[in-house]
Design a protein around this nucleic acid. Structure first.
Lengths: 391, 391
DNA sequence: CTTCTTTCATTGACAGCGGAAAAGAACCCA
DNA sequence: TGGGTTCTTTTCCGCTGTCAATGAAAGAAG
């Protein structure tokens, strides 16, 4: 389909240029001197790195007329022209595919859903391709080319090889997804674990921008965690990292599907909460919204379930903080809808379990729109496009 | 004391030279081509980097006559001349100072002890200085100069600033130890947290050589953990990392001095084990050796205490592995004397709590001679001497 | 005993990155 | 119009690491 003319790459041949570009990307409009300060490069080096990027249209000079210091030559802030390139991000879940068209600044332009009927690689690939085609058509409307596709899949994903090693939800093993999708779409494809993809988005375009050590905790069906250490996303030697959902925090807790007892996920995962609310209240609760509603209306049993869940999450965060000492923890995820029920208990449990100065860690929350996962996938595509070696 | 003539630094001006030197340091004798392969440098670059290092005597050509491939020009393996420089490593505990004289390959030449009577910075500094002087005298016997001092202190240590921010055992706050010791000894001083120092030794000269992601777990009075992620030692944004001793793994467990309950240290730390053995057996056990002896002689109560301790350690390791997915975990520490009592339970608990492929992590043990902590301090001094920015 | 092959090591030319310093540019203010 | 200030660019230069060719040291082959 669509013979991609292997368009010219973004001109970031030198490490300095790459550094400059990612700096502007993450830190909004920045003057050349500002870039030099931030990157510890000489201003001459910045000038030289910026020129080809401007000529190619990736950087533009904002005519930002306010906030002038009123003395000396006025600064020429640079920013990335988001509209210069488009990317497609796709999140594959067990029963749905979400795809977004995002610009170079990872702002979402268009979002699409598609229910997933079959889970075998062929069927999923077909669905992905369909959505990608739709978005490519949309992209034509913007008159800008799509320069890459990112695919986010939960489970053990080898980004470098572009292979999904094992995905429990899809029941896949060793699927060379990047290659498959690449030949079908004719675009460069990046495949990564979903939580890591979200972490990349946060690192470049979100609350992790400019922070070298942080953790992103996702609360929802599962409890996950993406980690950035020394400015790089942690993948783990065996492709698994940030598995805080299966930290066992209570030997006497409920059994988990992983075979252990008292896992965070077995206490604070969506399914666990629903089951427990049902048990406690005796009501035929089947969905998160019902459980949530019950708790919001003041049902003490339901509230207690959420309190325990919050405590479990807080202790898991405490564990991460004690082990890694990150500067910040970002809590996000679909489960954030219940944050008002959680919040206090998360904070209390975290404070109690964090040791020493590690407790100074800044714990914050961020809402997670449903397309956010797909946006994470787009962020990985942008990362690959720029060619930074994951910093 | 002793006016150090600020001797010429090791000639590693360029990143390539530094890379070459550390590669040879960690990976034993290596031919130039081997270095080029390992470092992804061109052979020309290796040649150029090696020359000044050989001229300065830091690298020597081993006349390694065996294991020749019998075809082509024979290789000239290079190795670091350990005897070319000496370093002093000092570990400061609450009641003792251990110092070693180590060579450039971090082999211990001389080791010394000194009981500590007072814990105020002045007294400790005096003791350190005394030991350092002794070792400097010893060093004269080798005819080689001492090129740096490393100090290892438990607690929150800012290596970059050379300041001990907070050490509970010494009851220090914000002591600029590097500066103090530097002016007194006239040598470059590196100050670091003790567990991190041990981790550095392991990373450069031990079971962590060549591994980019590993954890070092120390079992003894406390339960500590040093982490290497992306080839760099993790310090934590607030100076605290690897605090697995205060992971709370059992809400109903014994209280811990940190205010929490069921901390690993409150179950598997030396003091906790002794107390618990006393409670269980009713015998007036006061030392680790007595408790150990009791368990080794088959006392079921004591054995059970060690079993629980092993389980706690195993679960803590499981937590680290789930969060970081390291390639290897090295267990060490004074508590390793009880390893036969622990081992099985550590392994079982680890296996049970490790999730997915993270369980593939290689868990190994290493004996820890009493001077090892001081050797770690020496390793940090060597690191500073070479001037690698902690990789 | 020479000549080949193979592998290891070195040399010299070279591209090009990034830094230092100085000059240029744009603005305000007197 | 000329200073003062700050941002940006230019010019030159050192220096690093690569390329490709050459040299070196063996055993194998004729």
């Amino acid at each position: 389909m669509r013979s991609t003319p292997r368009t010219e790459a973004v001109p970031v041949p030198t490490p300095a240029a790459s550094l400059v570009f990612t700096t502007v990307l993450s830190h909004g409009p920045l003057t050349r001197t500002g870039i030099a300060r931030r990157t510890a490069l000489s201003s001459a080096a910045v000038t030289k790195a910026v020129r080809p990027l401007m000529e190619a249209g990736y950087l533009v000079e904002g005519v930002d007329e306010e906030s002038r210091p009123a003395l000396g030559r006025p600064a020429n802030p640079l920013r990335v022209d988001g509209g210069r390139a488009l990317f497609i991000g796709v999140k594959v879940t067990g029963d749905e595919i979400i795809a977004v068209l995002a610009d170079l600044c990872c702002r979402i332009r268009v979002a699409r859903h598609l229910p997933l009927t079959a889970r075998d690689p062929g069927a999923v690939l077909a669905s992905i391709t369909g959505l990608v085609q739709e978005l490519l058509t949309e992209a034509d409307g913007f008159g800008v080319e799509v320069r890459g596709v990112g695919l986010a899949v939960s489970g053990d994903v080898d980004r470098g090889a572009g292979v999904v090693r094992y995905s429990p939800f899809l029941d896949w093993r060793d699927v060379p997804l990047a290659e498959l999708a690449g030949t079908v779409t004719g675009l460069p494809v990046t495949v990564d674990n979903d939580v890591r993809a979200l972490t990349v988005a946060e690192q470049w375009f979100g609350a992790g921008a400019g922070i070298s050590d942080f953790a992103l905790v996702t609360v929802g069906a599962g409890i996950g965690c993406g980690l950035v250490v020394h400015g790089r996303v942690v993948s783990g030697a065996h492709g698994v990292a940030g598995e805080i959902g299966h930290l066992s925090i209570d030997p006497l807790g409920p059994p988990c599907h992983c075979g252990n007892t008292g896992c965070v996920e077995a206490i604070a995962g969506d399914a666990a909460i629903i089951r427990r609310v049902r048990e406690v209240t005796g009501l035929p609760v089947t969905g998160s919204d019902q459980a949530l509603d019950l708790a919001h209306r003041g049902d003490p049993g339901a509230r207690e379930v959420y309190a325990r869940a919050g405590e479990a999450i807080g202790r898991a965060i405490g564990a991460v903080v004690n082990v890694l000492g990150p500067q910040r923890v970002i809590i996000s995820g679909e489960g954030l809808a219940a944050y008002d029920l959680f919040a206090e208990h998360i904070r209390d449990a975290f404070t109690a379990s964090a040791f020493g100065t590690a407790a100074q860690c800044d714990v914050m929350t961020r809402p997670l729109p449903f397309e956010e996962w797909a946006r994470g996938a787009a962020a990985t595509a942008i990362q690959s496009f720029i060619g930074t070696d994951t910093q």
